[in-house]
């Protein structure tokens, strides 16, 4: 039942007039407070992003002297762009490439292992299923940083430090993805449907590949998004396990910071990065995720609330 139909029933079909009545002073104050709270928090959340979009269009001195929300010029944006991509003979491109490579490869492995796992946990009875499920839930709820140092210690004992695998394999372990596919299969696919296919003589692999998989497209996209976002934004793990030209852009950004004279007046490096260029690097580093958020907002919200809306 929609909000409107309910309201129509409650008010016996009469259109609501309450809003048109004159507000009491108390209601006025209440409404004003609400508007004020919303405006203050909207500004708090959005102004830093607007600033970040505008800053790369300015020169260093414009950034320091002009108003924070002024627009510089497209020429200056191009100049900052060139400075950023020329830095360290194009190392920023390498970092972005590394981020894309790590995040995407891990995403593929995550999907290959989590979709069948979620399916089996939801729809197949086997010994140890409950143990695996509970373990998944517990690991899913611990912050991913909690395992970073132990994973580093393990990888250094295994002599894997410095290898791309040291980033990709831990990234591929994504229990939240298994949980999402588990929830999806246990609510959206019925056992009867699978049993019907079995009675028709389909083997287990065919039941999974031809009955369950085609139904799973929405959850595959959902897990893909979450995994990509988590991988791309991860700083701590790659910071510990890879170095040199293998670092992703999150770690690279912090390295750029060391070459900004405004933050490091004594910087030894002869090549310096100006503030607007650092802002541009920050903006580019988040651009892929920002785009995903802009275009897949509804999608992501569904995933976040998958835990408890259906009781």
């Amino acid at each position: 039942m929609t909000d409107q139909t309910t309201r129509a029933i409650v008010t016996n079909g009469a259109p609501r007039r309450r809003e048109r009545h004159a507000l009491t002073p108390g209601q006025w104050i209440g409404r004003a407070v609400v508007v004020l709270v919303l405006l203050v928090f909207a500004a708090f959340f959005i102004l830093p992003i607007i600033w970040l979009v505008l800053a790369p269009t300015k020169t260093n001195s414009q950034l320091l002297q002009e108003g924070p929300f002024s627009f510089g010029s497209f020429d200056q944006l191009a100049a900052n762009w060139n400075e950023l991509f020329a830095f360290g003979s194009g190392v920023f491109t390498t970092w972005m490439g590394n981020s894309a490579f790590y995040s995407f490869t891990a995403l593929v492995i995550t999907l290959i292992v989590s979709v069948p796992a979620g399916y089996a946990l939801a729809l197949i009875e086997f010994k140890g299923r409950r143990l695996l499920l509970v373990t998944t839930l517990i690991v899913m709820l611990i912050p991913n940083t909690a395992l970073v140092l132990p994973i580093f210690l393990e990888l250094s004992a295994a002599k894997l430090i410095g290898s791309p695998l040291a980033v990709i394999l831990p990234f591929s372990f994504f229990p939240f993805g298994v949980y999402l596919t588990y929830i999806y299969f246990s609510t959206a696919v019925s056992r009867d449907l699978l049993n019907a296919a079995r009675i028709d003589g389909a083997g287990e692999v065919r039941v999974f590949a031809q009955v369950a998989m085609p139904l799973a497209t929405p959850v595959i996209a959902l897990v893909g998004f979450f995994s990509f976002v988590a991988n791309w934004n991860n700083y701590f793990l790659p910071f510990l396990v890879v170095g040199g030209t293998k670092i992703p852009v999150q770690v690279g950004l912090a390295n750029l910071l060391a070459n900004v004279p405004a933050f490091n007046p004594t910087t030894a490096s002869s090549i310096v990065i100006q503030l607007p260029t650092l802002a541009l690097a920050t903006l580019i580093s988040v651009a892929p995720i920002l785009l995903i958020f802009l275009f897949a907002q509804r999608f992501l919200v569904e995933g976040m609330t998958a835990g408890g809306t259906k009781e």
Binding site: N234, L253, L290
Partner: peptide, 14 residues
């Protein structure tokens, strides 16, 4: 309110 969630890790600190 939601959109800053896209900016995490080192990027948000910068």
């Amino acid at each position: 309110f939601y959109i800053p969630g896209a900016i995490a890790g080192a990027s948000s600190v910068l």
